[in-house]
Computed example of a mutant assay.
Amino acid sequence: MFTGIVEELGEITDVEELGDASRFRLRGPVVTEGARHGDSIAVNGVCLTVVEHEGDEFTADVMAETLKRSSLGALAVGSRVNLERPTAVGDRLGGHIVQGHVDGTGSIVARTPSENWEIVKVSLPADLARYVVEKGSITVDGVSLTVVEAGPDYFTISLIPTTLALTTLGHKQPGDPVNLEVDVIAKYVERLLGAQGGTR
């Protein structure tokens, strides 16, 4: 489990195409400290497994399903990525419960700068809109954020200077894709209510 609190901006150093999959090599001095084979690291909000680890770099295999559901397929050598290690038992839950299982992708629609923050508008796939509510939580490229406005096919988020400086969201431009993970609690509630309705 993750919390959506990005630990560092990493970098893609190599991409190897494997037919129906890809193998990424990524640099991240913070998240590779103490890393071992089989560990999980979230890359732009996608939970990936460490295959190899050497120095401040690690490799991870990305299957076809992940490439299809996320924006990882658009990454290339030199791309910056948000990196986060899983939360340890007993740690503070600084963001919200994030599984690293991307539900779909959106794209940056517009950025409205202010003196101390930016409002960013993000497109929202129709099948995810019901899970997004004003003042609720959403994960964008692995960053835990609060929804400011929830529209039928978009939502807005407010980014503070720290988020702008330390995550990929400070550099994304209109048209750029982003990974989205909605609040898992909303999905469980929908499933439970649907099951109750089917038994009456």
Rank of each mutant, 00 (worst) to 15 (best):
L18E: 14
G19H: 07
G19W: 08
G19D: 06
G19C: 06
D20G: 15
D20I: 00
D20M: 04
D20V: 05
D20A: 11
A21W: 09
S22A: 14
S22T: 07
S22D: 02
S22P: 00
R23P: 02
F24W: 13
F24V: 12
R25M: 02
L26D: 03
L26A: 05
R27W: 00
R27Y: 00
G28R: 01
G28I: 05
G28P: 09
P29C: 02
V30A: 07
V30G: 00
V30Y: 00
V31C: 10
T32K: 02
G34S: 01
G34V: 01
A35L: 12
A35Y: 07
A35Q: 11
R36E: 15
H37W: 07
H37V: 10
G38M: 12
G38S: 14
D39T: 02
S40E: 09
I41K: 04
A42K: 02
A42D: 08
N44Q: 15
G45L: 09
G45R: 11
G45S: 10
C47K: 02
C47E: 06
L48S: 06
T49A: 12
T49N: 11
T49I: 06
E52W: 05
E52Q: 13
E54Q: 14
E54C: 09
E54S: 13
G55C: 09
E57V: 01
E57H: 13
E57N: 04
F58L: 13
T59C: 15
T59V: 14
